[in-house]
Design a protein around this nucleic acid. Structure first.
Lengths: 202, 202
DNA sequence: CCGTTCGGTGTAAGAATTTACAGTATCATG
DNA sequence: CATGATACTGTAAATTCTTACACCGAACGG
């Protein structure tokens, strides 16, 4: 529970952030509340941090991050074109087409670093409801589970397939009768599992 | 138009802001891009500011405000449950289950006021790639076009159907062979057109 | 060949900010 | 009344960040 003063300062930080896109510095908080010593503010910030309302960087100015009561944490997921020539996150990272801004509610999971999106090309997954032009958000997974749809790198090109296990052996399966191709798992790089599908209409 | 380097730096600022809640300082940008002089970064910031992509405070650290292509244009779209007992936006607006935070890039259109999302129930649109449990973002449209998938109110329940015209007459058509039902348009309230489909996997 | 743009290096001054340390005053509580 | 929590004052050092100035090299267009 916050004291009246702490609440007022928390509210000010919230407002300041919405107006200026960054947190206020300690001197700016001093001026707002007519506090003549930086330490007067620091005490409140420590209290707010101890109570879990804010989080502050080690040292460096304006590093007040609002926790929880936050302005919905939006993840900026890089969207790569349909042909990814390499693993996104290596030296030759392909240039992101753009960024998708989505929150955790929409994504359905908490995006870790390394999460990315791909524009789907082709209809090899059409029976799974993923069509040409769709966007998929891929979460890098060290060990993808059976039956998940994964983004895999085959011959330098990124494709989506369903990961299946037949008689203990792993295969990649297209969800389209016209694409019977199965590839053994060992020869490929699995970039991650598809966690969210986004389709724009018209 | 931004140069490749400028775009990369702009993207980094965007990501940094969404991860840390504040803009990076110049030394932090230096470290990210292995630029050994602060002036190397300052040049880019001046270019970005001149091109209108960012705005900077007079003096003071971490005061990089993103303009236009801003991360601030996140729409909070209310998500209603599968059974909408009334038109969302009337007096008896159903309580939103939650809110989806998405930007214009993800949505594919600029969300006007009145835009909402529905959780899909049933498989009447499965042949259109919309499955049970999916979420659809609906844009209220005064005059929906032919062949658009619309959210319509039938007997107090909200359903998705494709709007088709046969011999000059409007019908609603399910995208599933098991649902042959067609309803004349005049008897229904069309809430809007489906503009985005979002599906979470696993 | 020359000027311009882009993308830097290197250094240093100076401004802004954070942090630390030593106190003070008020109020509620046991 | 003593104690602790809250809410500061005041000062100074340390750190971080911005800005300015001088200069370099490559690529490109005329």
């Amino acid at each position: 529970m916050l004291t009246e003063r702490q609440q007022a300062i928390f509210d000010f930080i919230l407002q300041f952030r919405n107006r200026n896109g960054c947190s206020p510095s300690i001197p700016e908080i001093q001026r707002q509340f007519d506090i003549r010593s930086p330490n007067g503010v620091v005490g409140h910030l420590h209290a707010l941090e101890a109570k879990g309302y804010i989080r502050r960087g080690e040292r460096g100015s304006r590093q007040i991050d609002l926790v929880g009561h936050n302005a919905a944490s939006i993840a900026e997921v890089p969207l790569y074109g349909s042909i990814a020539a390499g693993f996104p996150e290596t030296a030759e990272t392909p240039r992101a087409e753009t960024f998708l801004g989505l929150d955790e509610t929409t994504l359905g999971f908490r995006p870790k670093n390394g999460c990315f999106a791909l524009r789907v090309r082709g209809d090899s997954m059409k029976d799974a409801g993923i069509f040409d032009g769709d966007m998929v958000v891929v979460e890098p997974t060290p060990s993808p589970r059976e039956n998940q749809i994964v983004a895999a790198l085959i011959d330098g090109e990124c494709t989506l397939k369903r990961l299946v296990r037949v008689n203990g052996k792993w295969f990649l399966k297209a969800e389209n009768a016209a694409y019977p191709a199965l590839h053994p798992r060992s020869d490929l790089v699995i970039q991650g599992a598809v966690r969210t599908v986004i389709r724009r209409m018209q």
